[in-house]
Design a binder for these strands. Structure first.
Lengths: 256, 256
DNA sequence: CGCGATTTGTGCACGTCTTCACAAGCGCCT
DNA sequence: AGGCGCTTGTGAAGACGTGCACAAATCGCG
């Protein structure tokens, strides 16, 4: 049964077999494994143990093994995983065997940076179009691509098959852009605008919000500060102040 | 033990109250609630029901109520939540009552955009320093801040109390930068570099990887394509998959 | 003043994810 | 060939997160 088959070379793009049902948590980690595997491959490793790979990916080894087992993994007991084979496997499952076209809407501050980010190209994606609603930005050339007006989206979609839309507009414009993307058939959206998008069933949206990340970190800072400020006396000195919190304690005496 | 105390009530200056132990999942959603609340406040709402707020934040209402209950919430049955009070509550818990200083390391493509991103300032953070290892970038002025050399980090840290470090360098430099940040006392790091950071216990790291987000979307695109491509025409042509997941009959009730 | 409409807060059951611990399998060495 | 050490794959248990459904609490109104 272990026929040597290139998972990622179906030749036909239409006849795609059903994928295994992967837990979302597993899917979210596969790209990390993939990156670690590429590093290992570049370093000349032919095989790697779950221990080694998990360390490189920043997870524990049991989790890694279970994740890989979900995709019918090809490890060898006593040896480990074949690096090249595993890369193929994961790239196939993630659908990276074809280079997917990305439309980036909003070439402001962030969009500009994204347009120039080479991490996209190097990991299986191709920015197929830059779009903006601001006429004064249309025509500008960034990284070899000319910015077009967002209303040209249907034309762009007709030229190539857009797989993913990236929204890097202000929050106020995001929903409308999302609607336009959906209208031309895009079913996956990466949203950098700080707002909730409503999309029809079947469309996937992932959100990245830089400020939210900072706020989560802020919480942990706050918590750590409140812990280190606890003297060895065991606390309980904290008197419950009824009626909510009146004062803003801007004093946190974080250790330098 | 287990005296029920008011979690949100800060004691007097000096006596830092212990924060309630919030589930991580809850913490991750609080910023979203906060943003929705600010929108509501701007729109003139004084109170909001869990139904209304949850819709604005993109979650279901039971989850929202449970989340808020964890911080000893102050809703009124039959009425809803007081918007202003809830904002105060959440901002306190997240530690946003003080404006935290952020050091941004790496002013390349992405770092440049982050330096100009006004979402930081508008949501409780202040970029206190821009740093880079490239001498040719040192001295450049971005958004009113002069780029300094990363080796000046100790000096910067002495000038102000840095709360959070943001790494926007290439992957190769990230670990070293992280070490430098930790060395000057930073205990929270937001990492945009595509690599795993190893940091001592007590230091929190959150990672944002744009390519990973795209790859996750790519998986779902792949899966959706494999589902819609299943009509009887294909016949048995899909046995070609390597062992694990040939003919996995995914019966998802997904419509279109 | 009491009643009904409304909405919060939460106990409980369920599903998902994580972690442990170990049998099964593989290669190597004697 | 046989045994030994190493590593995978996985069952089972536990931790965590989610969603339902309803009692408790509050307001407005007649």
């Amino acid at each position: 049964m272990s026929q040597h088959r290139h998972p990622g070379a179906p030749g036909r793009a239409g006849a795609v077999p059903a994928l295994p049902d992967l837990p979302e948590a597993t899917v979210a980690r596969l790209p990390e494994y993939l990156r670690a595997l590429h590093n290992l491959a570049d370093a000349g490793h032919e095989t790697v143990s779950s221990e080694g790979l998990s360390a490189a990916a920043g997870v524990n080894s049991a989790k890694l093994r279970k994740d890989l087992s979900h995709l019918g993994s090809y490890g060898t007991r006593g040896v480990g995983y074949d690096v090249a084979l595993l890369i193929e496997q994961i790239e196939y499952v993630l659908g990276l065997t074809q280079r997917r076209a990305v439309a980036l809407v909003g070439v402001g501050n962030l969009g500009h940076a994204l347009a120039g980010y080479d991490g996209f190209a190097s990991r299986g994606f191709r920015i197929a179009a830059l779009l903006d609603a601001d006429p004064s930005r249309v025509g500008e050339e960034i990284n070899g691509l000319v910015v077009r007006h967002v209303d040209d989206l249907p034309t762009v979609a007709a030229e190539e098959s857009l797989a993913i839309g990236v929204i890097a507009t202000p929050a106020g414009a995001a929903q409308q852009v999302a609607d336009q993307l959906v209208a031309v058939g895009v079913t996956s959206i990466l949203n950098f605008a700080p707002c909730v998008l409503s999309v029809p069933e079947g469309v996937d949206v992932r959100k990245v919000d830089l400020a939210i990340e900072l706020q989560i970190l802020s919480f942990h800072e706050h918590r750590k500060a409140s812990l280190t400020a606890l003297p060895a006396t065991g606390g309980t000195a904290l008197t419950a102040l009824p009626g909510g919190f009146a004062a803003t304690d801007t004093q946190e005496a974080i250790g330098t």
